[in-house]
Design a protein around this nucleic acid. Structure first.
Length: 243
DNA sequence: AATAAAGTCAACCGCCTGAAA
DNA sequence: CTTTCAGGCGGTTGACTTTAT
């Protein structure tokens, strides 16, 4: 038994928004603020689903949107964040002021994918296309409860990914595959199940010295690992939990 | 000039999550 | 504890535009 629809579809408009609808939505949100999307259409005199209103506002009408072409700088940022976060478009959008998740998602699929392919990089793994897939270094901040899902060392739901290792202070669902050149080093080492680095260590943050992750010891990536080229401008990972 | 193919992007759909009842 | 619901997210669709033939 599925959920009831979010609104009465028989009496709602679909498709492209008209100027008048936009104006009504803008006027309503200006005077009442965002939120309560379900009741908003009726209150604003719109024959639209609440979800549709929310999407229209967030992706198109919000006053702080940048619009226009992406800069080369933004391109590179998106690539870096995608390699960090995967298809977490809302998280990526949160790091690019004035850009929306939908916009970035579209841009990724239409421009950046091709750009990476032209560079010989697989857009989904960020590895060189003609290289065989290698075991990715996993950075994990999952809770103990989540940890139980990974009983046999691999995520049973998705493709095989290495066993996760827990870092006590953070709870970020991030898995990171380092660039190809760094993985070479791993290949010459015995495979360790503790092939996981906490986010701090991966970034070379000093305060992570006390961390028990594999970077402290023989960790192959620890010293000069310029994580995705972001070492110089260290990412504030705490702010990744956003909104 | 006409048509097909490819590219772009706004909008929709269905699922997930967390809060409230 | 279970159910319901709103909000949010990522994947996908399809209308429209641009480019190639």
């Amino acid at each position: 038994m599925g959920r009831s629809p979010c609104c009465e579809k028989a009496h709602t408009n679909k498709g492209a928004w008209t100027k008048e609808e936009d104006d009504r939505l803008i006027a309503y949100i200006r005077s009442h603020g965002e939120g309560c999307w379900r009741s908003l259409p009726k209150a604003a005199g719109l024959l639209r689903c609440g979800k549709s209103c929310r999407l229209r506002w967030i992706n198109y009408l919000r006053p702080d949107l940048k619009r226009g072409n992406f800069t080369e700088e933004e391109d590179e940022l998106i690539i870096k964040f995608h390699s960090l976060l995967g298809n977490k478009w809302s998280l990526i959008a949160g790091r690019l002021p004035g850009r929306t998740d939908n916009e970035i998602k579209n841009y990724w699929n239409t421009h950046i994918r091709r750009k990476l392919l032209n560079r010989g990089i697989d857009p989904s793994t960020h590895l060189a296309i003609n290289e065989p897939p290698t075991v990715a270094t996993t950075i994990s901040f999952s809770t103990p409860k989540e940890e139980e899902k990974f009983t046999d060392g691999f995520n049973t739901k998705d493709e095989k990914t290495p066993v996760r290792e827990r870092c006590p202070d953070l709870n970020l669902e991030l898995r990171i595959s380092p660039p190809y050149q760094h993985q070479h080093q791993h290949q010459h080492e015995p495979l360790r199940t503790g092939n996981s680095l906490c986010f701090s260590c991966s970034l070379g943050v000093e305060s992570s010295k006390g961390c028990g992750c594999s970077a402290n010891g023989t960790g192959s990536s620890k010293a000069g690992y310029d994580f995705l080229g972001m070492k110089s401008g260290v990412l504030d990972y705490r702010s990744l939990e956003m909104k």
